[in-house]
């Protein structure tokens, strides 16, 4: 049986060879396979190339050091780095969420941290100086899947942090040092473009190599210092603070620079406190309201 079958197969094979010799389907098939193979490689590489178009366009490089400026809607400002306050002193930020300027000497953890509660501005701004991108969102507008989309851009990522921001005037606001972008949707492609362009961009952030790991002795990511919605008082450091005037430092003991000063008393001038800073001070501040422009806010 076996040998009979075998010789039949040989005969069939020879017949097939004869057919191919007269009509060279084999050659055509080989050429087709070759072209298909090359076409497959081309298609694969082309797909990869297209998929990474944004990464190429928005990755900082020698030639294009700040690609964020090519993203529609991004605003940018220049700030001096290294101007520190120490809590409870505040900074009189003028735009919200703040994206630079004086800040607390303690930075907020920004090594892929998602804060579920609003965090004190002064700490968050210091993290921007360390190269982080901060995703702030409006809790009323960003929930469920949208929130999850944003969280996935942050958790475990270097130099990324995220927090809700009370009364935010857009659903999402992205901050990096000196840069801001407000968008309406968690699926907006500019979010990833902003992150690609500014996360640890060595041509943009003022302190190359600075860590996003918080100092465990001073900052607890599980219990961060809370966001303060009130207006900062007169002792807040202004945005226009000149590093020279402050010696680059305004610690708790700065009053000691002036030996004649009485630190405790001078910090609480009578009747000049902002009405919003402390409820217990309210009666006193009412007295001063007549003469000052604080009267406008009371109306």
């Amino acid at each position: 049986m076996a040998s009979g079958k075998s010789s039949k197969a040989v005969r069939n094979a020879r017949a097939a060879t004869a057919v191919k010799k007269s009509k060279p389907w084999g050659t055509l098939a080989a050429v087709a396979v070759l072209v298909l193979f090359a076409g497959g490689i081309f298609t694969y590489v082309y797909t990869q190339y297209e998929a990474t178009a944004d990464i190429r366009a928005f990755t900082p490089s020698e030639e294009n050091q700040n690609p964020a400026l090519d993203i529609e809607g991004v605003t940018s400002e220049e700030y001096a780095g290294q101007l520190h306050v120490v809590a409870p002193q505040r900074v009189a930020y003028e735009e919200f969420p703040p994206n630079g300027g004086p800040h607390d000497e303690v930075w907020a953890g920004c090594n892929g941290v998602v804060y579920d509660v609003p965090v004190r501005n002064e700490n968050m701004v210091h993290s921007l100086e360390h190269g982080a991108v901060w995703i702030a969102y409006n809790e009323d507008q960003i929930q469920g899947e949208d929130l999850e989309t944003l969280r996935n851009k942050v958790i475990g990522e270097p130099a990324m942090m995220m927090s809700p921001y009370p009364d935010l005037d857009s659903p999402i606001s992205l901050q990096a040092w000196g840069h801001r972008l407000k968008v309406d949707s968690a699926d907006d492609e500019r979010i990833d473009q902003f992150i690609t362009a500014l996360q640890l961009n060595a041509y943009v952030y003022p302190e190359i190599g600075a860590t996003c790991m918080p100092n465990p002795a001073r900052f607890d990511v599980d219990n961060p210092p809370p966001f303060d919605p009130s207006e900062p008082g007169p002792d807040a450091m202004p945005m226009s603070a000149n590093p020279e005037d402050f010696g680059g430092y305004t610690g708790p003991g700065d009053e000691m620079l002036d030996p004649s000063g009485a630190p405790e008393a001078s910090e609480q001038p009578e009747g000049e406190e902002d009405p919003a800073t402390d409820e217990s001070e309210a009666p006193e501040s009412d007295e001063g309201a007549d003469a000052s422009d604080e009267g406008d806010t009371n109306d």
Binding site: G81, A202, E207, G247, G251
Partner: peptide, 28 residues
Amino acid sequence: RVQVRNLASNMLQHQTAESAKMVGMLRE
């Protein structure tokens, strides 16, 4: 290299500000 010039000038600016801060801390 641009990268080297950038790191050096970043160091310079950052450390100059940090030096000013340390002068203040010493005086204090």
